[in-house]
Design a protein around this nucleic acid. Structure first.
Lengths: 231, 231
DNA sequence: CCCCGACTGTCATCCAAGTGACACTCCCGG
DNA sequence: CCGGGAGTGTCACTTGGATGACAGTCGGGG
């Protein structure tokens, strides 16, 4: 009985993966794929601030974010720099496993986060024996590459005000951005006082409301206007 | 006879793809994969400056760079911005095809460039029916994502001098960087005079030699020193 | 062989963001 | 309920890159 409950929980997680990871529309999974996926999945919960992997680690497992938020960060000459935040459906560790390299960044939980874990052997077996899973994984990596490209374009050459506006719109969940101003600064590669100045200006114009550790978006339309200046 | 020559040329191209695209070490292709690949490949040559696709285009084909250099660029408020340069073995158009979206950037040849083209139907058939090709493609996209991440970290928060040094080291082919200073500026999201100032300083210290449309690296070691300040 | 367009070299001025610092406020845990 | 660590608000000063401009140079195509 106990075992059957566990199995059905794993199956539900696998089903969720089949809906939320990658681009479900063009590459559906079969029931048997989901069942096999369920066999391999392990759940792990990370406390806020808890690291999942450090720079230089050998990748030992693939992590699919189920709920919460991870951040990929490096520590450069100017302090912490956040490469990307991972939300539900995003994946970490697969790239390094596929390319057989060590982790080039640190992965940390921003808030309490639930992850689905696939061990190295499970991941490799899944990809090798399940073409549909492999194909679907391709769309997941593609999504991340597209996002990374769009991040590059919004960071390069845009004034800080535009960058902040775009970031807020991208990172919002339900019109709330659950990031500290320090983290926002680390995502943009700028200093906190600069971010603070922009946010205060936005707040003054009624676009956002600031509170401890988060930003509430009040006027998304106006913010979108700021982020894409009219030609 | 004529036909057989063409076929063998296509086979050589396919063989080259099997060696140079993605991560050959961990995911080898079979002879039959290469043969089927050869059946679909078409060659196209782009003149310097010739566009391959524009922003908003429907992706109709996948392009594998065989020789030369493509650039992915957008035109923002501050002028041209280069997201990435593609060299031999790099691929363009697959991401948008997989995710079923339009091209978010323009693709142009920087110099005369030879490409291997796979039409949409060929690409989809290959992926659907050849698990090894699909698996290999996964490593290619992964490589690009890893490069994109490393580009983000080197752009964000580093002083311009460091950025330029890293870019020169990354883009060099045989110690020569075949990019105009304007293009370097577009890759870094800064203005040309700023790039010029840094390059002149490097030239003054004997690290590089400047000439029309390219930069010759004279002292890669010292340049690496600049790009990674000692702890 | 010469011309025109593309690229480089350079400059004076301006401004956005960095720097480093300090006080204040908010939570969480003991 | 209170103490301390984390996060925010703010400021005076500095700086690096943007701006816009113009002259000089290269080199391919007619």
């Amino acid at each position: 009985m106990r075992r059957r409950e566990e199995q059905s929980a794993a199956f539900r997680d696998a089903l969720w993966v089949s809906r939320c990871v990658g681009h479900a529309g063009t590459t559906p999974l079969r029931l048997e794929d989901v069942e096999d996926l369920a066999r391999f999945i392990r759940v792990r919960t990370l406390a806020a601030g808890e690291p999942l992997a450090r720079v230089g680690d050998e990748p030992t497992a693939v992590c699919i974010v189920r709920e919460g938020c991870l951040e990929l960060a490096v520590h450069g000459s100017t302090g912490r720099l956040v490469i990307q935040t991972l939300r539900a459906g995003d994946i970490d560790g697969d790239i390094q496993m596929l390319l057989n390299v060590r982790m080039p960044y640190e992965t940390r939980a921003n808030v309490e986060t639930t992850c689905l874990i696939l061990d190295r052997s499970a991941f490799e077996e899944l990809l090798a024996t399940h073409p549909h899973v492999s194909r679907r994984w391709l769309t997941s990596v593609s999504q991340r590459l597209a996002r990374s490209h769009s991040r590059l374009t919004s960071l390069l050459g845009e004034p800080l005000e535009v960058q902040v506006a775009q970031l807020l719109l991208e990172e919002r969940v339900d019109d709330v951005v659950n990031l500290t101003q320090t983290t926002v600064a680390a995502l943009l590669g700028v200093r906190r006082p600069s971010v603070n100045k922009v946010l205060r200006r936005f707040a003054g114009n009624g676009l956002v409301a600031l509170s401890y550790g988060k930003v509430q978006i009040l006027d998304a339309t106006a913010l979108a206007e700021v982020s894409a200046p009219q030609p």
